[in-house]
């Protein structure tokens, strides 16, 4: 898989960031339109497990009813549906990411509804372009009627290693003098060096920037 970078612009700008970028792309390069692209992202939260109503649970010691249950770290799940991968869904549950068929959504909605609830839905609509060795996709991110920012995805097609690809993608973006934003290349723990870029790495970046918007 080619290395892919995601640049996220949170601030609203005038003119809108999407027009600034599209304008500069077409003035400084010869972009070939790839057509419309969209994505949908859902954030789900794990529902707290039911509280035992009977105090005679053998595993837990007696607690006074006033004492609140220990604050649990909620687990999150994220679904990402990219229009240019129409047959699959990226799913990040806690720290494990997989790609699966769309039917996964049906399983969770119909049979795991007591465990997981959708808390947030984000949508993005925009256009993609091919610029030499790059594929650039720009989209406005919205939650309902609210604009949440602009997402720019840059794929550098000849390269499958982050070590080489990251700098080139950053340089390309810098060449467009974009409004302030940030890249989300590596997870906190970094990447294993010499490992090939996978689709899951791309999915993980989306989940990272879209988690709380």
């Amino acid at each position: 898989m080619p290395v892919t970078g995601l640049y996220f612009i949170q601030e609203t700008t005038t003119p809108p960031a999407i027009s600034i970028l599209t304008d500069r792309l077409s003035k400084r390069h010869q972009p070939i339109p790839l057509g419309r692209w969209t994505f949908e992202h859902r954030l789900l939260r794990e529902n707290p497990p039911p509280l035992p109503t009977t105090p005679s649970s053998p595993t837990s010691p007696q607690q006074s009813p006033q004492q609140p249950a220990p604050l649990q770290q909620h687990k999150f799940m994220q679904w990402l549906d990219l229009s240019y991968h129409p047959y699959m869904l990226f799913i990040l549950a806690d720290k494990q990411i997989v790609t699966s068929e769309r039917e996964f959504e049906l399983i969770v909605r119909s049979k795991m509804a007591s465990m997981w609830t959708v808390r947030q839905t984000l949508r993005a609509v925009g256009y993609g372009y091919e610029v030499d060795d790059f594929r650039v996709r720009i989209a406005d991110l919205t939650q309902g009627d609210q604009v949440k920012g602009v997402v720019v995805e840059i794929e550098y097609t000849p390269c499958s290693y982050i070590e080489q690809g990251e700098g080139i993608i950053r340089d390309f973006m810098a060449g467009l003098q974009p409004p302030d934003g940030r890249f989300t290349f590596a997870p906190n723990e970094g990447y294993e060096s010499g490992r090939e870029w996978t689709l899951l790495d791309t999915g993980r970046q989306y989940c990272e920037i879209l988690r709380f918007r």
């Binding site: 799940m77 494990q96 990411i97 997989v98 996964f104 795991m112």
Partner: peptide
């Protein structure tokens, strides 16, 4: 019968993290 093929990623660890 509901099912979904898992294409990439560690399916076993994933199901565990689903709860």
């Amino acid at each position: 019968v509901l099912s979904s093929n898992i294409a990439e990623g560690d399916a076993i660890a994933f199901v565990e993290s689903l709860g």
